[in-house]
Simulated scan of single mutants.
Amino acid sequence: MSISFAPLRIPLRRRVQTAVVLQWVFSFLALAQCCIALFIILLFTHFWFVPVLYTTWWFWDRNTPYRGGRSSRFVQSLRLWCYFRDYFPINLVKTADLDPKKNYIFGFHPHGVLVAGAFGNFCTEVTGFREKYPGLKPHMLMLPLWFRIPFFRDYIMSGGLVPSAKESAKYLLSKAEGGNVAVIAIGGAPEALLARPGALTLLLKKRKGFIKLALQFGAPLVPVFSFGENEVFDQVKNPQGSFLRKVQERLQKVMGISLPLFHARGIFQYSFGLIPYRKPIHTVVGKPIDVEKKENPSQEEINEIHQKYIEELTKLFEEHKRKYKIPEDKHLTFI
């Protein structure tokens, strides 16, 4: 395999963009493990009191992730996220006004490998979410596992991330004065195993928990489609039924996280590596689907809203796909 090296003369701005995206990938893949290692190592040094004090703090603060988290506008507005945004680039597209006196559920599709579009648009403030939707505050839901890791939990909470648990979502949606947005990657970890350039398959047919949640709180549902989300990484072929896919699905059931074998480009060359490709991501936020509050919705009512959600998501995709170079004969597939 021939290697395509990056030119020596590249503007400093682009080099900084690559460095920022590298640290973002590192944060997803290895920062949690480094935090655990640091916590253990400190116990056997003169700084043993740091993990001891942190454990005390951790116990006292253990419920914070499930009560809206602890986002930091300072962290979300850091200049480095502008470089992250411009690397791809990432763009947030508004199609309708949202009432800040209501709480919403954003259904994000597709999951992609590392949900780059969701992170850029809803965990930072550099794509203009607060300007486009004044009075609303997004909270991206993430696997609860990551909120049990010392130091790392505080870092991800600063970006507005909260656990993808019913307790957490219910807290957000029960805010009487409104203003909260629960952003849920509906396909979850299993959908990451489908992510590859050109893929338009979404895990949605049996995903109805978010519909029930919306009905229980009367929270409008907003379909969100992120064009380009699947284009930024390649993935090793893992068709359904293959040995690799069986191993990945087994690990996903045991660990709660999926392990897609993805690859893209490197730091100084474009042929292989774990840094995403420079492909544009356009995250289109659709129109709200009003939901009548039902504390104990029937399965029939859930199915009815679920079907309406699929129809609105499909409509959103079809209305915008030509703008983002999706062929006319390509359509969403739901499994």
Rank of each mutant, 00 (worst) to 15 (best):
2 S>P: 11
5 F>W: 13
10 I>L: 14
14 R>Q: 15
18 T>W: 07
21 V>I: 06
22 L>Q: 03
25 V>S: 03
26 F>L: 06
57 W>P: 06
57 W>N: 10
62 R>A: 09
71 S>P: 15
79 R>N: 15
82 C>H: 15
83 Y>F: 14
83 Y>I: 09
83 Y>G: 09
90 I>Y: 09
97 D>S: 14
100 P>S: 15
102 K>M: 09
103 N>I: 01
105 I>W: 04
107 G>H: 00
113 V>S: 06
125 E>W: 07
125 E>P: 10
126 V>T: 12
128 G>L: 15
133 Y>D: 09
140 M>S: 14
142 M>V: 14
157 M>R: 04
171 Y>A: 07
172 L>N: 03
172 L>C: 05
178 G>E: 01
181 V>G: 00
186 I>V: 08
189 A>S: 14
195 A>N: 07
199 A>W: 02
205 K>G: 05
212 K>Y: 08
217 F>Y: 13
224 V>P: 00
228 G>N: 07
237 K>G: 05
239 P>I: 02
244 L>G: 04
261 L>Y: 04
266 G>W: 05
275 I>S: 00
276 P>W: 08
276 P>R: 13
279 K>L: 10
279 K>N: 05
288 P>D: 01
291 V>D: 03
299 Q>G: 12
301 E>P: 03
304 E>R: 05
306 H>P: 02
308 K>Q: 08
308 K>E: 05
327 P>I: 08
331 H>K: 06
335 I>V: 15
